[in-house]
Amino acid sequence: MTQPVAAWPAPAPGAAPLRRIVSAQAALELRTLLRNGEQMLLTLVIPVLLLVAFGRADLVSIGTGISRIDFVVPGILALCVLSTAFTGQAIGTGFERRYGVLKRLGASPLSRSGLIAAKTVTVLVVELVQAAIVLGVGAILDWRPVASPAAVIWVPLLLLAGTAAFSGLALLMAGTLRAEATLAAANLLYLILLGLGAVLFPLSKFPAGMRPVLELLPSGALADGLRLVLAHGGGVPVSALVVLCVWAAAAIALAARTFRWE
């Protein structure tokens, strides 16, 4: 109210370089996430608590020929991807749509693909932090992975494919359902996959008839793929990668067709 009106600057329109726009948006999304207590609970506290609980105590008999901690750490890594790429992203995006945030961004120089890029960067950064913490806590719990040098390639590939699959599912849900329905469904699916998705309980514990179906779930494929590489000393996780890539392609294609921005 103190600014003299006559001195208002003349129009000088122009978009910033795409990289600057995307990094500004990604940094904002990251700060928003860190400020959100429920999201931090979901992405960090729950995985670490489960890692400590299931890694130390004999809550479940593993019975798959590997040690308990060898079983639990890859499962928790898969849970991290599930919580960040799927549950967190679905809920966050659902409410952004509801509050007109996506609509308003649609009128800004940030393109839709730029927005997806910013969200992907945000998810990957959070996952890196999660992975570092999980691997750190795992090391404290005497986790010694039995892996070949090729794990350096397979683990990131599995995590990326899992992230793509879960992100596609998250955007499919957030772009079509009401925000409240997304919130409920994303949390419910999180719990279901936590229980049935080979995250904490080995698939060998389930009835034989269910197993083929559970192996085709993205969480089961991701967790068992990671176990194959990190606990069984250097297998090549072909079937896991195929399952995850099919989920990713289907979910992303469907989300792209059905996503409503407002």
Binding site: L28, T32, N36, F95, Y99, G100, V101, K103, R104
Partner: peptide, 12 residues
Amino acid sequence: VMLQSGGVPTTV
């Protein structure tokens, strides 16, 4: 563009 309402993330 100024929308009739909203458009800003709630916690920013």
